[in-house]
Design a protein around this nucleic acid. Structure first.
Lengths: 340, 340
DNA sequence: AACGATTGTGCATACGTATGCTCACCATTT
DNA sequence: AAATGGTGAGCATACGTATGCACAATCGTT
């Protein structure tokens, strides 16, 4: 177990100076082809790798991004929301594609996450992922922007918020899926999802839902709505709540797939058939949406694309290139649960 | 946007030397209480954070673990196996709990992953996660062990393999779930899962399945087995293959939940009822297993516990403490699909 | 033939921290 | 009063790389 070779070892064997080795391996044009090839050969032979800590320390950047995953506010914090997991996969791949490492961390929204990463020189920028009411942290975000921190959020895109946001078009998603149910002739469409401020994306979806109803000349009825956070259990509870009101309904727009799955369970328990009596739709298109019975019609967010945009935009921000927030399109995935 | 404060800045304001600041903040006993408190106060005031790169460079360790996630060999590489995602979540949490950062990377098993991480000084150790025939890489693993690399694998625990492995008791899982079906009176139990070497865990589960049948005095019948890699589609195909043989059966032991879900889809398409005509079981207990129709009886692997053991063991390995491979218990989660 | 332009390399140094060693100081002991 | 021991802090330095600057060598130009 010999110590790692350094650039000095390479230099010695190649008969050049250490800086020349550094330049050669980084592909600097000021090093001649012949020298570079010689150095590269020796480096390969010795299994040399650049010491990242030394390299980062000197160059003052890390080629690393930090992904801060904010815990669901829901009590069941033992599992991550499946959609965020899909995002995580996509972000990881895209970081690798761009030559960046990805540092992952779970956080509470209230904790002092800024200090831990970019400030500590562990990452060049941060991706903020998770439900959460960023508005409550406006002051902190403002300060971060002022300090020149590099970060980008996934969430509800609002022009007035500080910093950059990438998110899908939740309003349009809510609008189109509701339209879709209306086109099936559904008229008493419930909405399940938190209207709580902590879930700005759910609020947007709710806005789309309301707009669709209004455009169709229908009344937005409070009796057809119930709060649900993000879990399957929440969806189950919310659905039962509406049923227990004795409220008649023929459709359900759920703010997430998990909520929709819970709602279907509740309907099933009460002997209501899906989609014949009640059509149900979700949002996200998580894996499980394929396997429910009936399979769930839902608004798909393209996690692969979203991850690419997040990483790409953040890297451009780090490089000082012009960037802007970005609203991604959504797409309706039609399966059986909507009755179409 | 002023430059980050360094330990020299703190030292200046506190009227001490830089090394004293370093010692104070790291809690060295050679610094007096009074001095330490003073330094800590100033550090807080200036929003000081230790520069990780400098710190790591000097101390030659990073307080970072690398998670190498090997791609599924399955063609659909766009999504990560849900069980591994659950592991990822658990590993992340446990790293945080122990004060380590987690660096994530997708890899191909063939690529030169060792060089990229521990050697580059980016991580103190590596967690290897993914299906894969590590045996084919025995030589490389041997070399890594000889070089003193710190790594731990998730997978099939075999005493003869180099390095450390943590895995659940796949043989016992296969055994118990098959017993479970046998106890329901099932006698013609199929096995769906790759007997391919690339999936040692599936092989172990298959071993358990065979043992259970033999113990029950039943013959292990090739006609009741079909290869399936890890995806839902593979399970679907494999199930159809057996059905198309005209093979009679009353139970299915699938080597993963996704395979089981695909199998149930195939059975449903052919008008076979689950669990009345055919009982179906899975392995993993992914989220979706709750929501299938009927809900899937399966062998649960405790990802939360597994992640804790992996991280714990790796850290002890890094610290030079005695460690050993570890076999984790599995637990049968009974739902509707097994007919019990 | 002399001179500027170009090319390739070395020198010196900085990045910010952690730690072995030395040393001053004070309290206690003989 | 001298010797001893313990405590707290400073000095010097190392970790391995990247980069501004100087400079030597080569080339092309008039």
């Amino acid at each position: 177990m010999q110590p790692r070779p350094t650039s000095f070892d390479i230099a010695l064997r190649a008969g050049v100076s250490q800086p020349t080795v550094s330049r050669a391996l980084r592909g600097s044009p000021t090093v001649s082809e012949a020298t570079r090839l010689r150095i590269e050969a020796i480096a390969r032979e010795l299994n040399y790798t650049v010491d990242k800590n030394a390299s980062n320390l000197r160059s003052q950047h890390t080629k690393t991004l930090a992904l801060l995953l904010f815990e669901d506010p829901s009590p069941d914090s033992s599992s991550i929301n499946p959609f965020f997991l899909a995002m995580l996969g996509s972000i990881t791949r895209n970081c690798a594609r761009r030559g960046y490492d990805l540092l992952i961390s779970f956080q509470k929204l209230e904790s002092d996450w800024r200090l831990d990463y970019e400030d500590a020189g562990k990452a060049d920028g941060m991706i903020l992922l998770g439900y959460g009411d960023y508005e409550a942290y406006r002051a902190r975000l403002d300060r971060m922007v002022a300090n020149g921190a590099h970060f980008i959020r996934w969430g509800s895109v609002k022009p007035e918020e500080p910093g950059l946001t990438v998110g899908c078009d939740n309003v349009r998603g809510g609008l189109e899926i509701t339209h879709h149910l209306l086109r099936q002739g559904r008229r008493q469409i419930a909405f399940l999802g938190s209207a709580h401020k902590g879930f700005p994306e759910f609020l947007d979806r709710h806005t789309g839902y309301c707009t669709a109803l209004t455009e169709a000349g229908l009344r937005v009825d409070k009796a057809l709505q119930a709060d649900a956070l993000s879990s399957e259990e929440d969806g189950h509870t919310a659905m039962l709540e509406i049923l227990d009101r004795g409220q008649a309904l023929d459709g359900v727009v759920a703010a997430s797939d998990l909520i929709a799955i819970g709602a279907m369970r509740a309907l099933h328990e009460r002997g209501v058939t899906v989609p014949d009596q009640v059509a149900v739709t979700g949002f996200d298109d998580i894996l499980a949406a394929n396997f429910t019975s009936p399979p769930l019609t839902t608004v798909a967010q393209d996690a692969a694309h979203a991850g690419a945009v997040l990483v790409e935009t953040l890297i451009r921000l780090i490089h000082g290139e012009p960037v802007q927030s970005c609203l991604l399109p959504v797409r309706i995935v039609q399966r059986k649960s909507c009755g179409a």
